[in-house]
Design a protein around this nucleic acid. Sequence first.
DNA 1: TATAAAAGTTAGACTAGTCTAACAAATATA
DNA 2: TATATTTGTTAGACTAGTCTAACTTTTATA
Lengths: 226, 226
Amino acid sequence: MFYICSMLSYTEENYLKALLKLSFQNEDKPEAGTNEMAAYLGVKPATATDMLKKLKEKELVTYKKYGKILLTETGKQNGIAILRKHRLWETFLYEKLDFSWDEVHEVAEQLEHIQSAKLVDKLEEFLNFPEFDPHGDPIPKANGEIPTIDKILLSELKENELCKVVAVKDTSTVFLQYLEKLRITIGTPIKVLERIDFDGSLSIQIAGEEARNVSMKFAESLFVKR
Amino acid sequence: MFYICSMLSYTEENYLKALLKLSFQNEDKPEAGTNEMAAYLGVKPATATDMLKKLKEKELVTYKKYGKILLTETGKQNGIAILRKHRLWETFLYEKLDFSWDEVHEVAEQLEHIQSAKLVDKLEEFLNFPEFDPHGDPIPKANGEIPTIDKILLSELKENELCKVVAVKDTSTVFLQYLEKLRITIGTPIKVLERIDFDGSLSIQIAGEEARNVSMKFAESLFVKR
DNA sequence: TATAAAAGTTAGACTAGTCTAACAAATATA
DNA sequence: TATATTTGTTAGACTAGTCTAACTTTTATA
Ligand SMILES: [Mn+2]
Ligand SMILES: [Mn+2]
Ligand SMILES: [Mn+2]
Ligand SMILES: [Mn+2]
């Protein structure tokens, strides 16, 4: 179980995390393509190809010319370790330093690269072993396990169904700030009053307040639990 | 007062902090030499020369070929900002995450480079505006002011004088762990029982316990207040 | 003051990470 | 299946930061 390799550069860590995130997105086939990866990281495909060769050399990915990219078990565990740090730091910023949920990501992008096993574990303890980050995303455990939670999109609910918000699918600042304006956060109860077939929009009741209309795009960006 | 330049690289920040620390060491003339600086940073003199040219270009230091190096006001304020972050993070690790005082430095070396004005200020607030770090070193304020404290070396005390530990001069792991073994920390009261002229060693009483002998090197590594 | 030693600089090379431009392979489509 | 489009690779160049080896300037010392 000696998966975590500490001799990774800041940049290599970012590539591994990106590949892990892409593997979550492409649920069925957890592979990625060069262009997809480059786009995700904001670099050119040529750059991604170069890095891929290096990651392959270190046995963090399997890949051959013109083929798909797949994390090895070591690569995956290293990616998970970064994700764990990212989400623990987001939780710290949110819970302890009063950052809002649209501000935490940018700073956590930096903090996730701090190298100190003790720091991560102590931080987790200090935060009381949180299972989910401020956006409702699961925080990997020290052993690499990732907590799961039943969640469906708000758009999947039928009329008159009641639910609670468990996570955001879209973590963009503009969406998070909109949610804040609507006084929706993790845990907020929502009732679907009406579904408008015409455009997929919904009429919803937030925390027992008066009815409100939200778009299909909105309903497809919020994870809830019945 | 727009001193803090945020477009500094990790490396540039380290050079500025090093120059600031050297300026504290060379109290009278706050200048540094190329070799001195290189040694402090663990790089070769040639490397330091190259960086110096870059820092000069950015008006963070004044310096001419074969001359001494001096921080400009902007360079100094930027260095102070890094030092502030370093010491606040050390305090966080020590106070909140139960790190010991010989463990905090290494991690703070990484954390001091995190870029977020909000983070620093919130952290400071979270820690209740501490004035000194776990080693007794002053934490610069947001405006760049550095708290001062009366302190002398333990070696300067006369026989029968009583004092309290306020800071360590030597922050090496081996010294800090020795202090821990002796149950000496910031605030511990010490009484000088006897001075041995032969080798400058002292017989001291730590927190009212039985007498103990310590070397001159030891007595010159601990700051105290009468 | 002449010379030796110390301090500092320059030139040239290397690595990591990035880019652009040109090219090659794989896939979609007519 | 032939061709166009998409996807991915290669070659060559650039920057930041580092090094070694050779050189120059300053300072100390005989
Ligand atoms: Mn995030
Ligand atoms: Mn998150
Ligand atoms: Mn320190
Ligand atoms: Mn300190």
